[in-house]
Amino acid sequence: MTASAIRLTARGIGHAYRDLVVLEGIDLDAAPGEVTVLVGPSGCGKSTLLGILGGLLAPTQGEVRLDGELAPDCLNSVTTVFQDASLLPWRSVAKNVSLVLEDSPLPRAERAARVAEVLAQTGLADFAGAWPRQLSGGMRQRLGIARALAVRPAVLLMDEPLSALDAQSRALLLDDFAALIAGAGVTCVYVTHHLAEAVRLGHTIVVLSRRPGRIRAVLRIDRPIEGRHAEEPALVAMQARLWALIRDDAARAEREIADV
């Protein structure tokens, strides 16, 4: 698959829920085909920002733009993978994927082929006929990403997709996700509060401050994400740097009441 040539740019993003300012003056550049990770203390507006980037939330200030040449097989320029996978419980695994293709102009056979392809990529081929309730948490998240990949998005937004999982599933899925994101060559913005995920997946790591969320630091890891290992010394050191940046804010956020 060819890498996405779409760049996502956010300029001067600010957001407030009534009087409560959650985001202020955010400028963000997600480079084509790279993973940009957003980290920050709880309640810093990471998910709000992701919603704004995906067009699911109207910012009170600023603008989000996509620039670049869209690949011909792309059905939806920007797509979100949700924390809870947001599966339709009344549709089988395969039908949850085909849901997002049914309104496309793709011929029937092509749709079926795409469904089969993404289920195979995510290791769900044997569960095509299963109901979502029969899946484990990890399988649900894999289905969530399979569904997103089926539309061949140019920009993939991921909202803490692993945070609802236990530590073991999370570790296993993290490697799977890294391979899937790299394989799809998609421009990705990934929100997490797990710093190990951030250093494992990110080319760019954007650290947000506590509410109102502002950009506090931007770190780069100029290495392909395939072959990275969260336990290798350089990445562990990077995690420590990130934690040093977040720690005080996180401790303070912990003592605040989230009145959002």
Binding site: G54, L56, N76, T79, T80, F82, D84, S86, L88, L99, V100, D103, R147, V151
Partner: peptide
């Protein structure tokens, strides 16, 4: 669930 409707919107379903 609101989340399911948002999912549909995220995929630009009509």
């Amino acid at each position: 669930p609101r989340a399911l409707i948002r999912m549909g919107q995220a995929f630009n379903l009509p």
